[in-house]
Design a binder for these strands. Sequence first.
DNA 1: TTTT
DNA 2: TTTT
Lengths: 169, 169, 169, 169
Amino acid sequence: MARGINKVILIGNLGGDPETRYLPNGNAVTNLTLATSDSWRDKQTGQMQERTEWHRVTFFGKIAEIAGQYLRKGSKIYIEGRLQTREWEKDGVKRYTTEVIVDIGGTMQMLDSRGDNDGASRAPVSRPQSQPQQQPQSQPQQQQRPAPSVQHDAQPAPDYDSFDDDIPF
Amino acid sequence: MARGINKVILIGNLGGDPETRYLPNGNAVTNLTLATSDSWRDKQTGQMQERTEWHRVTFFGKIAEIAGQYLRKGSKIYIEGRLQTREWEKDGVKRYTTEVIVDIGGTMQMLDSRGDNDGASRAPVSRPQSQPQQQPQSQPQQQQRPAPSVQHDAQPAPDYDSFDDDIPF
Amino acid sequence: MARGINKVILIGNLGGDPETRYLPNGNAVTNLTLATSDSWRDKQTGQMQERTEWHRVTFFGKIAEIAGQYLRKGSKIYIEGRLQTREWEKDGVKRYTTEVIVDIGGTMQMLDSRGDNDGASRAPVSRPQSQPQQQPQSQPQQQQRPAPSVQHDAQPAPDYDSFDDDIPF
Amino acid sequence: MARGINKVILIGNLGGDPETRYLPNGNAVTNLTLATSDSWRDKQTGQMQERTEWHRVTFFGKIAEIAGQYLRKGSKIYIEGRLQTREWEKDGVKRYTTEVIVDIGGTMQMLDSRGDNDGASRAPVSRPQSQPQQQPQSQPQQQQRPAPSVQHDAQPAPDYDSFDDDIPF
DNA sequence: TTTT
DNA sequence: TTTT
């Protein structure tokens, strides 16, 4: 249940490869930065101006695994998520970081045509404990075809804090 | 022109009265904080949980004047804006603040029924320079009825019918 | 999985009481019409113009039950759904009706303050078969407090056609 | 001014080339159909199901010209518009057609990578009256580079920094 | 700091 | 009628 609406819709390109980690409970968390840019003609100088906005995006759960596996630096994606501001401390000073959370209830969709970004998905990051650590990197990829879209749902707040012993991004 | 989409949609309540200031060029800027909250039943304990998210919202231009004049602490509003992160420095340390910008291209709409929040709009903050500072507070308000909605862009209804002598599609 | 995005966001008022029916499988379907209106000043005449748009909204599943129970004529709601066009036939002529579908993956939120619309939820429409038809109207309502918001999720296409032996709306 | 919100967001592919016409007042109108599709696994049969939804989209004004010139059958686009239902009559029978209107206040953005769809924009449809009819089709195209994005509203970056001599919030 |  |  929600009192209010908190919705973010972005289309942009990844500033770098996504980074996937796993929570103690086995759930995946994927971080990436997304660029959206505006350009306009300056009224005074007549020059074209451009401003790029960088967004910190965090995926949770199944969608985090897919994001980590199929997205690469430069990938263009559509996401639908919600704003969340975390408080953290450094040198005794409180700081705040605002992220776009994409979990159950959010959406991600790849917008690159036919397997761009060299067409290859990456080997999934092995989960701690639940998978043997000598897992071969060269294992055959079971997913040959791109999985460009994920829509999942719901509410349960992901157990994020317990994971966040270091500062993401 | 935009490369990418950067859109935020919020429905929430103001945490305090909005604050309006004026730029040197006479344009208004209004700041406020907006609360959106989620509640859900914890799977483990069965207890209801609630989390409130606070959003910093900045209005520019005409919509900033309206926000400053008609909104109050507790007002429920719908806004549509874009994410923007500012960098600032304190004690030689860089910090970042993410805000939701509502300007031309954005939208604000009051959702309180019929002039709630004691029904009174507030006297507009006088602009520096451009208005005499002895402006009487008791001047008759020209806006008696709530102006619950502002949409910086669109409205003019296209003259579609006059064109439609045959059925498109 | 989706190829593409199909999203509708509306805030408006109900044109009449919602109508709830039950599918053979027991799932609820609630229909209502929602008005959104625009007004603008005509450039030529200087007169204010207004245009009201009426939207046909169909809820499925749990959210349909809540909509049927808590919404009334005049209720102001926020909905998030998707566009869907149905084909039907009358007198041998094909016709099309476009609706906004709100099911798993969509959202509804009541925007009336504190139990407006006389504050009373209505007795739920009895389900065919699954509940005795002499169900008393005066049964104690188990939901005393308004449930103004529902957010649910997912994909499975509702079995709509099998129900649609007459034309809704 | 709007009482209510009426917003549609679509990402899909054009089912055919767009068709542009000009109103008597010289304004462009462009029609196209856009496909969005969903697929899911049927719970009962385990088979993959797919449903394609076709949307009628109408652009007005400057954005209509750009849509007519740069889009082609198969183009993938993002649009933001509003729902509008028109009434029309055929053989004495009233019918209704629901369209997504994209005009001032709406947005269109091409999502194909770098000038796909054979990379060529089409010669603009000549306007009636306002342009000489012997206008050569073979005139050199002034737009060589794709214009993938149009946003009818927003851009001018507010002069925020010059104001920000103290830290808001 | 809001709201129900 | 699109796309993967």
